[in-house]
């Protein structure tokens, strides 16, 4: 229910914003010297002559059945363009997300278990640095070291999945690492502080009083309770991950959604911009919806509401 409402509201905002864009896509496509009747014909063909309400309904109902319209510049269905790019962007985002979780949870737990000791101070220092490094700059440093100096990987580009899964993953590895560093840093700090917070709770003392060791308490009681704030941050961070992925694609010349949308902006291919933006917003709303479901799985207090 909330999910659908959010999507509807978001699509309306995007549509209105794109409506505000000055200039006529048809005129842009045909150039300044286009004859008025050709222009009118193209406008009719693109459906630009209908009133905005009709076009909004047409756009939304089209998306519901997978029809995103036709790109003004490429003259191919937007759905085709987007799905060709999605097979790069989506694996990149997922790889980065997995990497950051795999780094952050052990690091955060380790730091929390050794609170105030050298390991904790060290991990916290590294994460403080990790948060301050712009991911696209870190990506450039990675290219300098691994592509230009060591020549282990190519400096960019994507061979396509046809070249094999291993080649594909290899091309996405550096971008994913660059993306994951900041996410992992933030997440590790959250994991640590959530765990330390949980460890001061009364029920931890109760568990200790029935004979659980510090380790058992951490694993059996603190961890699950600490996952609740961690999930919240994970949901919020996803939006940054998306933005980061779009930017990082530029560093590595990856043919993903990011490059598509920036081309769309410079070429006034607004229908592409509109669709990609909608897709990104959809992803964010979807992830937050999944986070809500995960809450209910973890926390019995939120079930049956």
């Amino acid at each position: 229910m909330m999910f659908g409402l959010s999507l509807a509201a978001a699509s309306l905002v995007i549509f209105v914003m794109i409506e505000l864009v000055p200039g006529d896509p048809a005129a842009f496509m045909l150039g300044i010297n286009a004859a008025p009747d050709t222009l009118a014909a193209l406008r009719a063909e693109l459906g630009l002559d209908a009133n905005p309400a009709v076009r909004y309904v047409r756009w939304v109902s089209g998306m519901l059945i997978g029809d995103f319209g036709v790109s003004y510049t490429y003259q191919v269905p937007v759905a085709e363009l987007v799905s060709a790019r999605l097979v790069v962007s989506l694996p990149l985002a997922v790889m980065a997300l997995l990497l950051s979780i795999l780094i952050a949870i052990p690091a955060g737990m380790f730091a929390a278990a050794r609170r105030g000791q050298a390991a904790d101070v060290g991990i916290m220092g590294v994460t403080q640095l990790g948060i301050a490094i712009p991911n696209f700059w870190f990506a450039m440093l990675l290219v300098m070291v691994f592509a230009i100096h060591l020549r282990w990987v190519s400096a960019g580009g994507f061979p396509g999945w046809e070249a094999g899964v291993i080649e594909g993953v290899k091309a996405l590895l550096l971008p994913a690492v660059a993306l994951a560093v900041q996410q992992a840093s933030i997440l590790a700090r959250v994991v640590r502080s959530a765990l330390l917070d949980t460890l001061t709770q009364d029920y931890i003392r109760t568990a200790r009083a029935r004979g659980l060791s510090r380790r058992q308490v951490l694993v059996r009681h603190a961890f699950r309770n600490a996952m609740i704030p961690v999930l919240t941050i994970l949901g919020l961070q996803f939006s940054f991950l998306i933005a980061g992925a779009v930017i990082i694609e530029n560093v590595f010349f990856l043919p993903g959604l990011g490059r598509l949308v920036f081309q769309g902006i410079t070429q006034r291919d607004l229908i592409v911009v509109e669709s990609v933006v909608m897709l990104l917003v959809f992803a964010v709303i979807m992830v937050n919806f999944m986070v809500d479901i995960a809450y209910a799985i973890i926390d019995p207090r939120l079930r049956r509401r």
């Binding site: 029920y203 109760t206 200790r208 009083a209 004979g211 309770n225 019995p300």
Partner: peptide, 22 residues
Amino acid sequence: CDIRGRRMGMIFQEPMTALNPL
């Protein structure tokens, strides 16, 4: 740890927060 819970137990004041909610 071996003694706590087996040879001696303890009850705390605040019943609302002293049990693991999950």
